[in-house]
Amino acid sequence: MFENIIQQIPDIIEATKQTAIMVGISVTAGILFGIPLGTILFLTRKGQLLEQPHIFNILNSLVNLINAFPLLILIVAVIPFTRLLVGTSVGTVPASVPLSIAIIPYFARLIEQSLVEVNKGVIEAAISMGANIFQIIWKVMFVEARAGMVVSLSNIIILLISYSTIAGVVGAGGLGDFAVRNGYYRYQPDIMLATVVIMIILVSIIQISGSRLASFLDKR
């Protein structure tokens, strides 16, 4: 059993790298686009600083629509866009395109909810002191919501690890794809078990790190 696992360690390491690439690219996209989108969703809500019902309704509907898409269907649906963007639809990096599209609105919704939980009195106090919109967002809202945002970030990383297993359908590789191809199809339960254990360890590390960092940042 262990000999078989040891022999496949190089392949397991390569699969882990592929998962890390997919998750890394998608998380970066989620941060770059999800945080601004979630912030705009919050600010344009009814009763907020930049209340704009039309803008909110459009963005809200778009977020709901993408979040409702099953990932497998989304991967297939955006193949033309993936080819346009990276030149191919097969591989680890191309798989990051639909994963990013899936995670951006999901993360945006989590960011919006984190900002909703900010004490409105703190924002009103900043306004009364003459703070501009940028200062309110950066120095008040984000500071107050940072613990929730860290928890949200750890949640999407864990979700992306799960999503990366589905991305194997487009030849993305990764731990999930490795477990299915080398463990399930080749009747090697030890390989499948070893891969699952690695994924559980990764998820546990992310969960514990995210929770501890959120507790450290939560000064309420």
Rank of each mutant, 00 (worst) to 15 (best):
R220Y: 02
I25Q: 04
W138L: 13
G176A: 06
Y187P: 12
P98N: 09
Q8G: 11
F42I: 14
F142V: 13
I103H: 02
N132V: 11
L153Y: 01
L99Q: 06
I101Y: 03
V197W: 00
Q8E: 11
A29F: 05
L50D: 01
V170H: 03
V93M: 08
L84T: 09
G121R: 08
Y187V: 14
I31V: 15
I191S: 06
A102Q: 09
V180M: 05
F178D: 08
N67W: 05
I205Q: 13
T88N: 10
I6R: 10
S162I: 13
S204V: 07
G210R: 01
K139I: 15
L213G: 08
V140D: 00
G148M: 12
R181K: 12
A125Y: 00
V122L: 13
Y187A: 12
F81C: 09
L160Y: 03
I103G: 09
I137V: 11
Q18P: 11
F216S: 08
V170N: 02
T88L: 14
V122Y: 01
G87F: 11
K139G: 15
I35S: 03
K46C: 02
F142W: 04
N64W: 02
A147N: 07
E117Q: 13
T82C: 11
F142Y: 07
I166H: 00
S162D: 07
A172R: 07
P70N: 08
L71M: 13
I111Y: 00
